[in-house]
Simulated assay, not measured.
Amino acid sequence: MTIFTPAATPFRRLGPESPATPVVLSVPHAGRDYSDALLNASRLPRPKLEALEDRLVDRLVWRAVAAGAPAFIADVPRAEIDLNRDEREVDPAMVVPRPRPSPLADTARTRGGLGLVPARLAGAGAIWRQRLGADELARRIERVHRPYHAALEAALEAARARFGIAVLLDCHSMPPRRAEGGEPPVVLGDRYGTSIAPALADAAEAAVRQAGYRVGRNSPYAGGHITAVHGRPAEGLHALQIEIDRSLYLGPDLKEPGPGFDRVAALIADVAAALAARALAPPDAIAAE
């Protein structure tokens, strides 16, 4: 299976080139640039593949970008490659020639069909008509996965060089949750306190509550590969994942913007502002936590 991404670049950078705030935004799962080759390789129709998306989250970050935070937006769809997975999280059964097990990571995500290249969808079965060529997998890693993470790292390093600290806000959405069960519609993931200083995570949580939303921490989403790799508090680099219930900002079909769309855009901007304010607030030595 050979698939070539038609876009000149697999992701976009929005916002200023020079750091105006210590906060950097990441939107890895909202890509909608489905090539004909990708769609032809799938045994599932495009609407099924779109179920993998964090629908329209790329359009929710505009207020934060307008306030000075750079944002990195994936255009390549998650069906082609998942930027929130380790590049070793590959199901060896879907690649030909079959890679040796040693360089691969056997995780619950790969076993569930949601590794670096998604293999299966719940309720729909296998995604692809045939196995993925090892050369094509290598191309996606080299052209999409590694450049995206390198761009995030460079932006965070630039912010840290200017402010002495940098914070990545990794933006995602999740399927609608059962409000009657008391499940919060916003979940912050700090990898159980390892990817960001507690004071910063607390500031983000307070901003969500101030905006009028209930918020949880780490359950059911504690943060993925992006927060794990880029969140290194001991080095002054912090990362926090935010998951937002899609029913808060999409219409009943969960496809198009709903009446709460701009309110959620304001929420993301509020969280980014709270993180920046807490990061820069003297005399706290957050970078040393």
Rank of each mutant, 00 (worst) to 15 (best):
G212N: 08
S26L: 02
R43S: 11
A166S: 14
D54C: 10
L56C: 00
S247K: 08
R143K: 11
V186G: 10
I73M: 09
V229T: 15
A276M: 06
A274Y: 05
P101W: 03
A281P: 05
L56M: 13
G115R: 02
A234W: 04
S26P: 04
A108V: 11
V271R: 04
A37I: 02
R63L: 13
I226S: 15
P118K: 12
V215L: 02
D270M: 10
L49Q: 03
D33F: 12
R146I: 10
G182R: 09
L267D: 03
R209G: 07
M1I: 08
G113I: 09
A277T: 13
G123D: 04
N218C: 04
M1A: 12
V186N: 01
A20L: 15
I165M: 05
L240M: 13
T21R: 15
M174C: 06
A269V: 00
G236I: 04
G125E: 10
A228P: 08
A276Y: 11
L60W: 00
A203E: 05
A288Q: 14
L156E: 13
P282V: 10
D262Y: 14
G68A: 12
I268K: 06
R32C: 10
A206Y: 05
D106V: 02
G236E: 03
G112A: 15
E87A: 12
R59Y: 09
A273D: 11
S195H: 01
L188C: 09
R85W: 00
E80V: 11
P184E: 04
P16E: 09
T5E: 13
M1E: 11
A159V: 02
R85M: 07
P259E: 09
A151N: 03
V167D: 02
R59C: 12
I196R: 00
A79F: 03
L116T: 00
T5R: 04
S102D: 15
V61D: 03
A134H: 07
L60S: 06
V264G: 01
L254S: 08
P97A: 03
I3R: 10
T194V: 13
G224L: 04
V96K: 10
S35N: 08
P233C: 11
E183Y: 11
F261M: 12
P147L: 07
S26E: 00
A37N: 02
A266G: 12
I244S: 07
A158H: 05
R32F: 09
P92V: 03
A93W: 03
I81H: 07
A108I: 05
A211V: 02
A64G: 05
V96E: 15
P28I: 02
I196V: 13
E183M: 14
A74L: 02
A138V: 01
R217D: 05
D75R: 15
T5I: 09
F4T: 13
A30W: 05
G258D: 02
A154M: 05
G113N: 14
G113L: 04
R129H: 11
V117A: 14
A197N: 10
V117E: 01
Y148Q: 06
S26Q: 00
Y221T: 00
L168D: 06
V23R: 03
P10L: 08
L39C: 01
A124L: 05
Q130C: 01
G115M: 01
D106C: 04
D75C: 08
